[in-house]
Simulated assay, not measured.
Amino acid sequence: MMKMKTPPIVSAQEWENAREELLVKEKELTRARDAMAAERRRMPWMAVEKDYRFEGPNGMVNLLDLFEKRRQLIVYRFFYGLEVTNSYAEGGMYPERGCAGCSFLADQVAHPAHLNARDTTLAFVSRAPQSEIRGLKKRMGWAEIPWYTIIDDFDADFGVREMHGTNAFIREGERIFRTYFVNNRGDEAMGSTWSYLDITALGRQEEWEDSPSGYPQTPPYRWWNYHDAYGEH
């Protein structure tokens, strides 16, 4: 094994100086990330004109149903179905295994109750039938995430003919609009409540954010809660 070329060993004060120098750049990155999220909130909306259908655990539903009566919807196209080959599943075949990268993401998804508290629903969709989805959800402990079967061109129409991708939607009554899309390496940052809210049209909905006039906003911290306690307020 090749010996690692490690950084220099320094005193506590020298280490703190180096950290402070790097912190300046980290703060710049944070501000740039906030500014990018603010631009997403000003993205134009695209009307969804087709009536997309899905098979759910309780029967057939449409895209509006996936919102679960909330204002916003985030849909992750999980690469799981007959099209998943051994090379994508890594160590096994469908239906025992899905895409390794999609499974990695699913393992780090925060409890959806926090998104729900911001009037936002997260859902997975795949080509696999519900019988296979139920089995994988049970095995992997993904019970809290709604997961539907694609039966039409939804994935192809929204940038994910195969593999994975994340679409954000918003609704005005029964009218649905596509507001954002991220895939490829953009997906690797997803999973936290903040990363999901930052790609939505309404953002984190906190007062410090740079959002268009009239967007819903509340003080930070005050809305945060235990994932099983949001119904108390």
Rank of each mutant, 00 (worst) to 15 (best):
E20W: 13
E21R: 14
E21V: 14
L22V: 10
L22N: 10
L23H: 08
L23G: 05
V24E: 14
V24C: 12
V24A: 13
V24G: 11
K25L: 11
K25G: 07
K25S: 10
K27I: 12
K27C: 07
E28Y: 01
L29W: 04
L29T: 02
L29A: 03
T30N: 08
T30I: 15
R31I: 02
R31W: 07
R31Y: 09
R31N: 08
R31H: 12
A32H: 08
R33K: 05
R33M: 02
D34L: 05
D34G: 08
D34W: 02
A35S: 13
M36F: 10
M36N: 11
A37R: 09
A37G: 10
A38G: 10
A38Y: 14
E39D: 06
E39G: 06
E39H: 05
E39W: 06
E39M: 10
R40E: 07
R41N: 14
R41D: 15
R41T: 12
R41L: 04
R42A: 11
R42Y: 10
R42W: 06
M43I: 05
M43T: 02
M43K: 10
P44Y: 01
P44S: 02
P44E: 06
W45A: 00
W45Y: 09
W45D: 01
A47Y: 13
V48E: 03
E49Q: 14
E49H: 09
E49A: 14
E49M: 13
E49R: 15
E49Y: 04
K50S: 11
K50C: 08
K50F: 03
K50I: 03
K50V: 04
K50D: 05
D51V: 03
R53A: 15
R53K: 15
